[in-house]
């Protein structure tokens, strides 16, 4: 995989705790630009804490997080990084369009942006409905639509496809790859291993550490396994204690 010279995100020696519980202890990684990178790992592995650190909303104890060449959380990044939290961060007591109109005003994006993101997330039919009256899958798409406003250069998406039917999931992954082709960098977390195969690059995470940083094909080749689930088990040495080794 050819990696563009300037990574979208560089994390070095990151220590962070969620509440009082230490989650990341000296984590380092690079996320290449203009790709869909999957952050895969079981819940509790530190995916959300890492994503929050990249977005700049997480208190970190030490270490550096560089996003698009700037320190994470700096004012310059606030209109260039889109973030979707695990639970839909939208106003339930506003309509879909009112939500988008407000966040558009906050971002200072053009008025036509609202129609564009409604189209991209296929929310046209429910634009006038109260967000709280929508299904869970629709609400998470509203949250995604908000993150797409202003066409950010980096999208950090925490489990964006949870609870969606297979057709919608396929459509969203098509959207993600379309965005990457257009120059957007994406970090997409999932605890569903079969989603990993759809990513350009993979970061396998467990207990606050990166187990592997590879392409899906590279990971399978390095572990000698047939699917990502098996590769994960091989990496944590759970299928065979002697097989514990680092890929590459």
């Amino acid at each position: 995989m050819d990696t563009p010279a300037e990574p979208a995100v560089i994390v070095a020696d990151l220590h962070a705790r969620r509440g009082t519980h230490p989650v990341l202890h000296g984590l380092g990684l690079r996320i290449p630009a203009r790709q869909v990178v999957g952050l895969i790992g079981p819940s509790g592995s530190g995916k959300t804490t890492l994503m929050r650190a990249i977005v700049g909303v997480q208190v970190v104890q030490s270490g550096t997080v560089t996003v698009l060449g700037r320190p994470a959380g700096s004012a310059w990044l606030r209109r260039r990084v889109g973030y979707v939290t695990q639970d839909a961060s939208v106003y339930d007591d506003l309509t879909v369009r009112q939500n988008l109109d407000y966040f558009r005003a906050v971002l200072g994006a053009g008025r036509s942006d609202v129609a564009r993101v409604i189209e991209q997330t296929d929310l046209g039919a429910s634009a006038r409905q109260l967000t709280g009256s929508l299904s869970g899958g629709q609400r998470s798409r509203v949250s995604l639509a908000v993150a797409l406003l202003g066409s950010p250069e980096l999208l950090v998406l925490d489990e964006p496809t949870v609870g969606l039917d297979p057709v919608l999931r396929r459509d969203l992954w098509t959207l993600f790859h379309g965005l990457a082709a257009g120059g957007t960098s994406l970090l997409v977390s999932s605890h569903v291993m079969d989603e990993a195969a759809r990513c350009d690059g993979l970061l396998l995470m467990r207990d606050g550490d990166i187990l592997a940083d590879d392409t899906p094909a590279g990971l399978l080749a390095a572990t000698g396994t047939a699917d990502i689930d098996a590769a994960f088990l091989r990496l944590i040495g759970d299928d065979d204690p002697d097989a514990r080794k680092e890929p590459r």
Binding site: V57, R78, R79, T85, A88, F103, V106, L107
Partner: peptide, 13 residues
């Protein structure tokens, strides 16, 4: 609770 505050504070508000 809904995370909208965190979202807003990650934006240029």
């Amino acid at each position: 609770r809904t995370g909208t505050l965190e979202r807003l504070l990650s934006m240029p508000l």
